[in-house]
């Protein structure tokens, strides 16, 4: 069924958008082109109300218990979490690298800010990603227009506020075009 078929249940609080949660795990020892990356991505839930979100979220594995090289993407319905998607092609993302142990709280705060429309940048936000790696965890938020500095600055400032990060935390912006060129996300 399409994300468009999901509707809020009776008495539920609707969200501004419908979202899909995608899970992907890197296949060890294999090069990742877009096609194989996409093949390893699965939608594990779709929601359009606050209550539907919590229902899915409470059944998901806790991010601090996720092992290995895995990613969870929460993206607006109709946008694939791929650099090549038409919503992302001209976009980019803010990247925050976190030491192990900090990520669960930061991820939840990021998701709640996105679902609650706290970024105040219209339709610009495409989705958010948590990437579990061996040495560190990385969270990122993707937006449509990398070239709009007013938008990217506003996202950065909101991100800094809602994540309540230690003062020395580095935030980097990377365009998806750069990622396509160097074939690397971070």
């Amino acid at each position: 069924p399409s994300y468009k078929d999901v509707v809020p249940g009776p008495g539920e609080h609707p969200l501004q958008y419908t979202y899909c949660i995608w899970y992907s795990k890197k296949q060890p020892g294999r090069a990742q082109d877009a096609a194989s990356f996409e093949k390893n991505m699965n939608v594990i839930g779709t929601f359009c109300s606050v209550e539907q979100f919590w229902k899915i979220y409470s059944h998901m594995i806790r991010v601090n218990e996720m092992a290995g090289h895995s990613d969870i993407h929460v993206f607006k319905g109709g946008i694939k979490p791929l650099w090549e998607d038409k919503a992302n092609r001209l976009g980019g993302k803010w990247i925050v690298r976190l030491r192990k142990g900090l990520v669960a709280r930061c991820w939840e705060n990021l998701i709640l800010a996105m679902l609650g429309e706290q970024f105040m940048v219209g339709d610009e936000v495409c989705g958010a990603v948590i990437s579990i790696r061996f040495q560190e965890d990385i969270i990122s938020i993707w937006n449509r227009t990398a070239g709009d500095e007013q938008v990217t600055s506003r996202i950065r400032d909101t991100l800094r506020r809602v994540l309540n990060l230690p003062p020395n935390t580095v935030m980097e912006y990377k365009t998806h075009n750069e990622s396509l060129k160097d074939k690397s996300s971070f």
Binding site: H13, Q16, W54, N109, L112, G116
Partner: peptide
């Protein structure tokens, strides 16, 4: 148009009691 805005504490409250306002 109007956007549906929720703050963190409201969203967390919905988790605790799903049908609350």
């Amino acid at each position: 148009g109007t956007r549906i805005i929720y703050d963190r504490s409201f969203l967390l409250k919905c988790r605790a009691s799903p049908m609350s306002n």
